[in-house]
Each structure stands twice: as C-alpha cells, then as structure tokens.
Amino acid sequence: MDSPLHHFELHPIIPISVMGVDLSINKAILAMWIGCALVFGLFMLAGKKGGSVVPSKLQSIFEIAMEFIQGMVEEFIGKEEGKKYFSFIASLFIFILTCNLIGLIPGSYTITSQLAVTGAFAFGIFILTLVIGFAKHGMHFLSILVPPGVPKIMIPLMVPIEIISMLARPISLSVRLFANMTAGHTVLAVLFGLAMSASIWIGWMPFGFTVIINGLEIAIAFIQAYIFTTLTCVYIGDVIKLH
C-alpha cells in the first residue's frame, strides 16, 4: 500500500520550462483552474441580471458572502480605507475557499496543501502590508516596531522582538492553512485506504468515516479560508492604523 502522503506527490502533465525554470502544468494547477473557472462562472451567473434589487437565490448567496466579507474588512481595516482593499480581500477569500473545496472532490488536488503556495501568498501579503505601510506613513511607518507605552530603555529589546513577531506572522499564516489542509486530506487518505484495503464486511466503517470527515473538511475549508483572510485584514489594518 502507498503511503497516505503519496497522493500529495505531483507529476507534470504538460511540461513547460521557461529559461530553465520548471513551469509544468500538473494536477494541482489544473484543479485550481477548474475551481477558479467554476467560481467565476457562478459569479457571472449571479450578477447576470446586472444585480437586480430583488435578488435571485444564487445572487442572494453571493450577496451574503459579499456582505460577510465587507463586514470583516470594515471591522479590521476601517470603513473608508476598507473599500480600497475589499476586492483584494474578497478575491483572496474566494480563491482560497475554492482551492480548499475543490480538493475535497476525490481525485483532485488541494493546492493550498502545498506550503510553497500558502507561503508564497503569505509572503506576498507580508510584502503588501509593508508597501501599504510605507506608502501611507513613509518613514514614520517604522514606529510600528515600537509598541506604544514602551519605556525608552526597552526599545533596543522591543525592536528585535517586534521584528521577529512581524516576520513570524506570514509564516504562521501559511503554516496554519497548509497544515490544516494537509492534515484533513491525510486523514481522508488514510481512512479511504483502510476502506479500500479491508474486506467489504468491515470496510464500510472507515468509508462511512470518510464521508463524515469529508463533511467536517468542508467546514474546515471555510474556517481556514476565513482565518486566512481575517488575519490578512488584521495585518493590513495594523499597518494602516499604526497601533
């Protein structure tokens, strides 16, 4: 029997190489594309009538999602500032949620279970917060390294601590998403492997668990997407408000 982590392995489907960098299309990327296309299609369907005042069912689902994200952005970033970042935050939420959910279909792949991907996103968000901070406050932004109310004598100690805590944020952000997705899929893989390898008399039990855990995974997919975007909002809000 294969290792339960075996299905995380990726093999190029369409090999592409640009200037020595491997950019092959593999299963994970295909699954992500399918998910994105589906979501975009749903969005277009929802907003097809140009956003009527009396919404259709699909439209109201997306409206609830939008309002939810709007509330989140307004709470953590602020009402006026939040409008600028709403599209980004909403897209991020939708993207991560889609990637989380598409992986629950047996045979597909969750790209967010790759630390490289979540790390890239977290790092990108980290850079984005730095850019926003410097654009908004200029050199004054560096004062984020000194928490308010700290005695002068503590500053040499606080600055490296703050730097480490700031650097740790994107890492924990990416590790959390990656770990949750990997753990969920590993559990599913183990249970499914058990179900397949056992005889039919006992095999239905792990299979039933697979179904239940799959339901749980849907909840986790939502929760993790929510946590990732919430924390992104918090980080952006932090650099905008500057304490």
């Binding site: 092959s24 939708i94 490289a116 996103f121």
Partner: peptide, 18 residues
C-alpha cells in the same frame, strides 16, 4: 522541483481571478 511552477501558476491565477 514543483515549487516553482506551483508558486508561479497559483500567484498568476490568483492575479487573473482577482
């Protein structure tokens, strides 16, 4: 060896979706 393609395509796809 798959990191480069994963990072590249996911960021690009996110950008396009955004």
């Amino acid at each position: 060896e798959v990191f480069s393609s994963l990072i590249f395509w996911s960021l690009l796809s996110f950008g396009i979706l955004f």
